[in-house]
Every structure is written in structure tokens, then in C-alpha cells.
Nucleic acid binder design. Sequence first.
DNA 1: ATCAAATTGGTACTTTCGTATGAGTAGTAG
DNA 2: CTACTACTCATACGAAAGTACCAATTTGAT
Lengths: 118, 118
Amino acid sequence: MQGNSSLEFIIATIAIIFLFIGIYINKQKETSKKVTESTIANEKVNYTKIEALGLSKREYEVLCKLAQGHTNKEIASLLFISESTIKTHVSKVYSKLDVKRRTQAIQKAKELEILPIS
Amino acid sequence: MQGNSSLEFIIATIAIIFLFIGIYINKQKETSKKVTESTIANEKVNYTKIEALGLSKREYEVLCKLAQGHTNKEIASLLFISESTIKTHVSKVYSKLDVKRRTQAIQKAKELEILPIS
DNA sequence: ATCAAATTGGTACTTTCGTATGAGTAGTAG
DNA sequence: CTACTACTCATACGAAAGTACCAATTTGAT
């Protein structure tokens, strides 16, 4: 029975090895899937969609600050321009995103995945 | 050599079987993880975090509507109560989330994953 | 039953937001 | 040069949001 038990041992070992190989293969798939998703979501798709919406650079900058929870006055300070100008930009952003309020703009921007980090 | 090749065949079969078992196990993990995450993210963890924050049911309801882009007046209509009450709730939500404005409340709530769907 | 928390509502006031309108400047494509 | 777009800024006005304070009612737990 010695030969048999060593054979069983070999088979068991192979089984375990391939079991882990199977698990490993799936882990790899998961990882690559995640990286791809996050990469696309925050770099490439963005600019395409932003341009498609007709948002200018400045308008997009304002939108980002807005989505970070800043007031118009704060955004003005951050971008070194007047609050009037911010209001102008914000209004244009609203019409381009087809919304009425900043809370809706944030929602829409997140849906469109045009905001950094997310 | 017939015995050997049949042995190899058995080993190979076992290897393949366990390979797929490994893959299958991981699929299951993935699935249950997603279900758990989504379930937790939208039902259970919520309540835990929500309670930890000290948010009452009503305050949480208001927060959700707020995050959907509604005005105070709209939320009042949706919940069949006065705008005064909404303001009261909103203010309490702010202090509990440690924010000053609704845009920040939305941000914070998303970070804390206490909002449905997301 | 009692006490605490939750819910509701109001008044009054300040701040922020949003729109409308007009206008000057800079850069760019034709 | 001209036309167009993006960017800037201002004033004025109304709408929403936010704060402070107070108070009545309801609900839940002990």
C-alpha cells in the first residue's frame, strides 16, 4: 500500500497546485479589470465627454471646484478671478449640463464621470 | 507504458478539474463580495454609519433628497412637510456631518457611502 | 407615567446663488 | 483685417439657502 499512498499524495499535490493556479488566474483577471476601469474613468473618457458637452477649460475648472463644495467666492479666490466671472462660468456650465442648480450639476457631472478622483 | 499513460490521464484530469474548481471558488467569492458590498452599501452599513453619525431617519431622508439635487421647497413637497422643517433638518444634518453647505454634505455623504445607488 | 429624543413649524435675518444684461480684452482661424 | 470664441468684470434683482431662537407635538423607551 506504500506505492498507492505516495501516488495519492502526488495526485493530491497536483490537485492543490492547480486549485491555486485556478484561483490565481482569476485574481489576475480581477486586477486587470479594476485598473482598466479606473484608468478609463479618470483620464481618457473625461476629455472626450467634456469636449462633447462644449465645456471650456475654465468652465471645467470651475465645475471641479464647485463639486468640491466650494462657494463662488472661494472658487474666485482659488482661480484668482472675480466672483462675477465665476457666476458667469457657473451659469454657462449649468446650461451646458442642462441643470438648474449646483447640486444637480454635481450629480450630472458624476453620472458623466467627468470629475477627477470620484 | 499503457498503465503510465492512463495514470497521466488521470492526473491531468484531476489537475483540470481542480483548476476549474479554483476558478469557480473565486467566481463565488467575487459574486458574494459584490452582493455583500452592494447590500451593505445600500442597506446595512448605511444604517450602521448613519447611526454612528447620529442621523435620525428623517434627517437621512432629507439628506438623500438633498443629494438628488432637490431644493428645500421640493423636499418639503416630497415629504409633505413645511420648508421650515426641512431647513431645521438640513441644518442638523450639516452639524452632524460637520459641513457648512449642501454641496459639502453631498461630498461627505458620498465619501461615507451612506447614499443609495451612488 | 415620565423623560428624552425626534419631528414639526414659525419668524427674522444674513448670506449665497442664479439670472439678466451689457461690455471690454485677448487670441485665433479664415 | 475680421469674425468668433473664450475669458473677464460689473450692476442689479429675485430666489434659495442657511442660521438663530423658540416652541408644540409625537414617539419611544424605561
